[in-house]
Design a protein around this nucleic acid. Sequence first.
RNA 1: GGGCCGUUAGCUCAGCAAGGCAGAGCACCGGACUUUUAAUCCGGGUGUCGUGGGUUCGAUCCCCACACGGCCCA
Length: 497
Amino acid sequence: MQDSFVANRETKLGRIRDRGIDPYPPRYRRTCDNARAIAVFEAVEAESRPAADAEGLSLAGRIVSMRVMGRAAFLDLQDASGSIQALLRKNNLGDGFELLKDLDIGDHLGVEGSLIRTRTGEITLDAARAVIIAKGMRPLPEKYHGLRDTETRYRQRYLDLIANRENMDVFRLRSRVISGIRRFLDARGFLEVDTPVLVPVAAGAHARPFITHHNALDRQLYLRIATELYLKRLIVGGFDKVYEIGRVFRNEGIDQDHNPEFTLLESYEAYADYNDVMEMVEQMISRLAAEATGSAQVAVGGQVIDFTPPWRRVSLREELQRRGGIDLDACPPSEKGAGELQRRAAALGVDTGIRESRGRIIDKLLSALVEPHLTQPTFMLDYPEEMSPLAKAKPGAPGYVERFEAFACGMEIANSYTELNDPQTQRQRFEEQEDIRRLYQDEEVDRLDEDFLTAMEYGMPPTGGLGIGIDRLVMLLSGQRAIRDVMLFPQMRTLPG
RNA sequence: GGGCCGUUAGCUCAGCAAGGCAGAGCACCGGACUUUUAAUCCGGGUGUCGUGGGUUCGAUCCCCACACGGCCCA
């Protein structure tokens, strides 16, 4: 068993305590982090700082490797900024050198002393004092190969972060993306808000909700599947520009780009339409790319994606015609279902269910025929009405709404409408969705939110709305292939026992 | 939901084709070593071979089921 590893460390822990040393002291004050210390020493060497700045420093970190040579030892101490080598010598430490016998890889150590450069040229803290600041009781993954096992990497993300240091950069990038979004929207006068996660109606997107129960109210509640309808209530309330970056929950499968909970940005801007939103999206994402990666041209899987505005704009109808030879207007909605459209899809090898709504078939056609070709950032415009019950009709184009989705690398990165603000039409659209649900036994359709309709009846200004899946955006900007590689704690099955 | 691949020491992986005492490197334990850096040298395997059945004199290996993970498809 691994107990022998733990038992060894328990013995060492006991010896440390027997010497009257607390292996878990409440705090450790360090002068600076490791990267800073190295920068300071380089400045001292360049004589741009006084030599005294390299003396009397306190540094700290996790021991990630040790090279012990009798009465001296080199330890690599890792903190968030990087690693620094510490030199422990019996000469300098005296009785304190005894501690070395009870140190293990994984322990956190504090060292005080002066920075030197060793014979081999490495900047090193020559320790006059060494203090254990937290004993590790389990062995860490191997130093050379790191931690490869994907399952352990996701289940014990901390080990992944310790052993595969470069993965930290993905999450740093993610943080920069999110803070960049806030900066961008705040600067444009948007108000960040929080809307309910526990909701009585799971509406605003096509998705199955998680169901929960509130004891005191003795009623069923859902976890939100979108923030859309609450943010629109705030537009009704008179906030001109609102956004929320929040977790939403969809009770669906888990795969390369789906996790049951994920982070969604939604924004709504009164008096704007989807053209304004398009401009905002290309501005925002090109800036995020530049801030997060250093350039608006990002290398993803061997190709360079250039987010510099303006992005290409294509019409959904024309793309479907061009890529699949299908004219949507020649395949109108029919009472008996999708009819002709379904036959055309089947002929193209696009697998559709026996009974599927026109919207779902179009969605599948787009996924199969069009979206894979949208490599460089592209807006696809003007979606069929039955795919978009919350979007406003496009003038002069019956059956279509003012909606776009943005794609890059074949992946959807944004979705936007000129929002429907006519309460009577909205009610009608909701009812049509309910009909579709009954007809096709399709659970993944919007549920009618009566309270939201009431809000809209008080008058909602014309509004441009936007949704961006943050996780997928981070995948794109960091070149990660799986959503679980941009989420710190992806959903996993429970292990037996 | 379907197909394929994987699960062996703390970690990274061999071994299984053709069933016969469980292997390596790192880590760890003991010893040497005061400028090393995948430190070096000497000595030491620390294991529920994912779980449960089956076949067999004998199963990590062959068969079945299940669990978990990955890839592809839906």
